[in-house]
């Protein structure tokens, strides 16, 4: 995938800067303030998930690829390996449980796992794949605001 490519250590300290960077680029590509905020949230939650549940090895890296094209952003976040569980399966379990809890008015559930559920609600397409080499989260976010595209990729 063309566009922006970044690699960062699996360390939470890097995330505020990375999410703000991509959100700012999205704004420059014509996403409005609300959509740029949502993109900041999407990047944040996916990276947090990758670090929290990914490999605990010292030199683990998180890779991000981000492409702005026409009226959409495509983001792929990959972490490297050694997971103890399948993220896709855990996500499906979490979303079912949280939806049940919300419908019962139990939004203060002590369970975690809201991050990818928020992501799912903010994106137009979400694809999660876990293999023995790691997990890849791929999202598509369409631009709905009327602002013109600032630049072509």
């Amino acid at each position: 995938m063309g566009g922006l490519k970044m690699e960062m250590p699996a360390n939470f300290t890097y995330i505020p800067g990375v999410r703000a960077c991509i959100s700012r680029i999205a704004f420059n590509f014509g996403f409005d303030d609300r959509e740029s905020y949502q993109i900041e949230t999407i990047v944040d939650e996916i990276c947090n998930n990758a670090i929290e549940h990914g490999s605990k090895k010292k030199d683990t890296k998180i890779r991000l690829e981000c492409k702005f094209e026409q009226d959409q952003m495509e983001l792929v976040v990959t972490d490297t390996g050694n997971r103890k569980f399948n993220v896709e399966q855990v996500f499906m379990h979490n979303i079912k449980r949280l939806q049940e809890e919300i419908s019962k008015g139990l939004a203060d559930s002590p369970h975690r796992g809201r991050g990818l559920i928020i992501v799912q609600k903010l994106v137009d397409k979400l694809d999660i794949k876990t293999t023995r080499n790691g997990t890849t989260v791929k999202i598509l976010k369409r631009r709905h605001s009327d602002a013109p595209l600032a630049a072509s990729s």
Partner: peptide, 16 residues
């Protein structure tokens, strides 16, 4: 703010 409220609404937090 509106951006934050939208996220809180999304997962039912503003009901509490």
């Amino acid at each position: 703010n509106d951006n934050i409220k939208e996220i809180l609404d999304m997962i039912g937090v503003t009901k509490l």
